[in-house]
Amino acid sequence: MGVVTEPQPSRRRATVHDVAREAGVSRGTVSRVLNGGYVSEQARAAIEAAIRTVGYVPNTAARNLVMQRSRAVGFIVHEPHALFLEDPNIGAIMLGANTVLSDADLQMVCLVTDSARDTERVTRYLSGGFVDGVIIVSARAADPITDAVVRLGVPAAFVGHPQTTVPLPWVGIDNFTAARDITRQLAKTGRKRVGMVAAALDRDSGADRLAGFKEALGDTFDPDLVVEIPLYEYTAGLRATQELLERAPDVDGIFAASDAVAAGVLTALRRSGRTVPDDVGVVGFDDSSWAERCFPPLSTVHQPAAGVGERAAQLVVAQLAGQDVPRDGVLLDSPIVWRDSA
């Protein structure tokens, strides 16, 4: 026969009143200490000792409710769920941002928008005041979330230039110049028929990389050597290269809009029997973990993804502290890293 035990009563949470009673001071004096106000050293020492004795833990949730602060910052990514997990740049941006937010005692809340329904849900979430600020990655043109940020006045920082008439804080790199320079370097290796797998043209990064590619080639630019894909992803790069080879079997250089896309380009070239870099030179963009996984290792543009995330988070933290921040954009360096693929 089993032994029946009486349920143990749950331990009551210590309150400010308990601390005040133990310390022999008023509740208001305890509140001043907890909120960083001035009290005598004697009263402060008594209160700190009482906190340890009664085991008082501040109720942060209740305090935040009174202060109308959540102590949370949303990290919003406009990408499909699969790409969020696959793209090492997004992970690096997120970790960089989280380091800064953690140091500021702020919690990151990740929000991935993969559909119109997701976008509507996240917009409602922002309107509900569940986060104090937001970092937005991959914002697109006519983005309802960006519109909500402007309407609500939410402290925000964008990774990449938001396509809006309202000046908003953002951080990124000079995609146009970086794409132009690496395309020129590819052409200098003797390539005569240089094509591009262009991605994500509905946001500033993709559009600027294509514009830089066109600028680099000048009069030799051939629009038939550009294949457009919607996302920075491996499988799309593979399919696009197959299409490009059908259009122009004599292509001898390819600029891929990202390293993940370039990995797909290399696979398609290998399947077609072409060697890299002898038959076709290939360059990418990002200098992500994809670049060194490729064979041969990928020539690419170094994007300081972690640094971008850190700077974006710093812009949000500064706004939460009431500081002015630049609204004309913060650009980080993005040097070319030349390897064996070109």
Rank of each mutant, 00 (worst) to 15 (best):
M1Q: 11
T5I: 13
V19A: 02
A23V: 01
G24M: 08
V30S: 04
R32F: 12
G36C: 03
V39Q: 06
A46L: 10
I47R: 00
R52P: 07
P58L: 11
N59L: 09
T60F: 09
A62N: 10
R69V: 02
A72F: 07
G74C: 01
G74A: 12
L85S: 13
N89E: 11
M108N: 05
V112G: 07
T119M: 10
R124N: 06
V134E: 01
S138F: 13
D143N: 01
L152F: 10
F158C: 08
H161I: 07
P162M: 03
P162G: 05
Q163M: 12
V166F: 01
R193D: 12
V194W: 04
L201W: 05
R203Y: 10
D204E: 15
R209C: 10
G212M: 10
E215K: 13
L217W: 03
L217Y: 02
G218P: 13
D219I: 09
F221R: 10
I229F: 05
E233Q: 14
T235M: 12
A236S: 15
R239Q: 13
Q242H: 14
V251I: 11
I254G: 09
L266I: 09
V276P: 01
D279S: 04
D287G: 03
V301D: 09
A305S: 15
A306K: 02
G307C: 06
E310L: 01
E310M: 09
A312L: 02
V317Y: 08
V317E: 08
G322S: 01
D328R: 13
D340Q: 15
